[in-house]
Design a binder for these strands. Structure first.
Lengths: 137, 137
DNA sequence: AATAAAATCAGTAACGATTACTGATTTTTA
DNA sequence: TAAAAATCAGTAATCGTTACTGATTTTATT
């Protein structure tokens, strides 16, 4: 890997991501960072998000909606995706790391880990919809 | 929803998918079904896979590799994705449905379920690589 | 501080997976 | 067996993302 040089753009992207708890997409990052630097390119945002994820400073989340989300919190934790509004939020829950052991019990190969996300209706949508609990995903 | 009419193409797609345990992508379905019907269109394959998934006859798998996989086995079970060769296989393991309860404990909203997949090195790749166990995903 | 080498950039073109459109063809209903 | 509706093949368009290019920054070296 080439030596990593400092870049204002990368710093802005990382800083912006740290202010957010909603796991924005590349496009959302782009739109927001543009308010500080109107010249920044979408390609630059993508490149730096990928770079930051590769060196482990941020996390790339694939929650099945066809768009990558990004999280500045790299500590192990789980995510929830609302089937109604698509929002992604953190879950406060104990580790379920043991499921990796369970999965490996009868498996011919090596299981390194798991990716889990939960879906349903978020608090806001629940309140808006009354009692409907019909998940779409 | 419009009334569902029978279609040879849809039947072929479903039948093909039932012969496979490797959770092929739309493109793989297309290439195989074309051997029976060289005139079939890729759009038809996509449309019918989506339709079959919507009515619950097949399952769409999103395992984070950017391509949708499809599974004719709609019973609840888990999947493994090889970080080396990208193959997707079934896991024989007990249900871990209880993690949905765990996740819901401190959550403001309704959790309908979870999506989990496991990653690591499959049996074939393990044998090819010797003792290397370095996951890439 | 000035300079050179290397990384990064903005802007844009290209890409791959998927979806949408169109007029022709099947399938079903009556 | 004819009309209505769903489906089709073929193709264009879309969307998220990546790759390319010559210009600009950053860092290391004088």
């Amino acid at each position: 890997m080439a030596t990593l040089k400092h870049s204002r753009q990368r710093e802005m992207i990382k800083n912006f991501l740290m202010t957010r708890k909603d796991h924005p997409t590349a496009d959302v990052v782009y739109m927001n960072v543009r308010q500080q630097n109107p010249n920044i390119s979408l390609g630059t945002v993508y490149r730096n998000l990928t770079l930051l994820a590769d060196i482990g400073e941020i996390r790339r989340l694939r929650v099945g909606d066809g768009v990558d989300h990004f999280d500045a919190d790299t500590s192990p934790h789980y995510h929830f995706v609302c089937s109604e509004c698509g929002c992604v939020s953190d879950l406060e829950m104990d580790s379920i790391e043991e499921i990796t052991e369970i999965a490996g019990a009868n498996f011919d190969g090596y299981i390194a880990g798991h990716i889990t996300y939960f879906y349903g209706i978020c608090g806001k949508c629940t309140k808006l919809n009354g009692t409907e609990h019909t998940a779409k995903m």
